[in-house]
Amino acid sequence: MPGFNWGGLLAMVIKQRALYLGAWWMVLPIGTAIAVLALGFVLIHLEMEERFIYPWLS
């Protein structure tokens, strides 16, 4: 499927050996985006757990 994806960008960074050559600015935006997405999923999980699984605790 054509388009923008993080897997393709990470593969390009690995193929070009960007980290070894000191090009950290190629990795930082992708890593930050993945970390923010993961944090969002964790926060959604915690809120759903508090509201639906254990509502009597709050």
Rank of each mutant, 00 (worst) to 15 (best):
F52R: 09
L43P: 00
R17S: 09
W6K: 07
A33S: 13
I14N: 09
M48P: 00
T32K: 02
P29G: 07
W56C: 05
I53L: 14
V13T: 10
I34N: 02
K15I: 02
R51K: 14
E47I: 10
L10M: 13
W25I: 02
E49L: 07
M26I: 02
G8M: 04
N5Q: 05
V42E: 07
E47F: 11
V13E: 14
M12E: 15
A35N: 05
I30P: 01
W56V: 02
G22M: 07
I14P: 00
P29W: 04
H45A: 14
L10G: 00
L28G: 00
I34M: 15
A35C: 12
L39D: 03
V27E: 10
M26K: 13
R51W: 06
W6Y: 11
V13Q: 12
Y54V: 12
L37F: 11
V36D: 01
G40R: 08
L28F: 13
A23F: 15
A38G: 05
F4Q: 06
W24K: 09
R51Q: 10
Y20T: 03
F4D: 08
G31C: 11
W56F: 08
T32R: 03
E49A: 13
W6G: 00
R17M: 03
V42I: 15
V13M: 12
F52E: 09
E49W: 08
F52T: 04
Y54H: 15
L19C: 05
L21P: 00
H45I: 01
L28D: 05
L9W: 05
F4I: 10
L28M: 09
I34A: 13
F41Q: 09
R17Y: 01
Q16I: 03
L37T: 04
L39Q: 09
M26F: 15
L37K: 03
M48I: 08
R17P: 00
I53D: 08
V36R: 08
L19R: 12
W6I: 14
W56Y: 13
G8Q: 11
A18F: 09
V36F: 08
I34H: 01
I44S: 04
L10K: 09
W6V: 14
F4H: 10
F4R: 11
A38C: 06
Q16M: 10
F52K: 07
I44G: 00
G31E: 04
L43V: 07
F41E: 11
L28W: 10
W56T: 06
G31R: 03
N5C: 10
I30L: 14
F41R: 10
M12Q: 12
M26S: 03
I30Y: 04
A38W: 08
E50L: 13
F4W: 08
G22C: 08
M12K: 14
G40F: 11
M48K: 12
Y20G: 15
L46T: 02
A11W: 06
M12Y: 13
M12D: 13
I14E: 15
V36N: 02
W6T: 11
V36K: 06
A23V: 03
A18N: 13
L21A: 05
L10S: 02
L28Y: 11
Q16G: 05
V13S: 06
E50W: 05
L37V: 09
V13N: 15
A11V: 01
K15R: 14
M26T: 05
L37I: 04
G7M: 06
L46Q: 14
V13F: 11
M12N: 13
M26N: 07
E49F: 07
L9P: 00
A33T: 15
V27Y: 12
G8H: 05
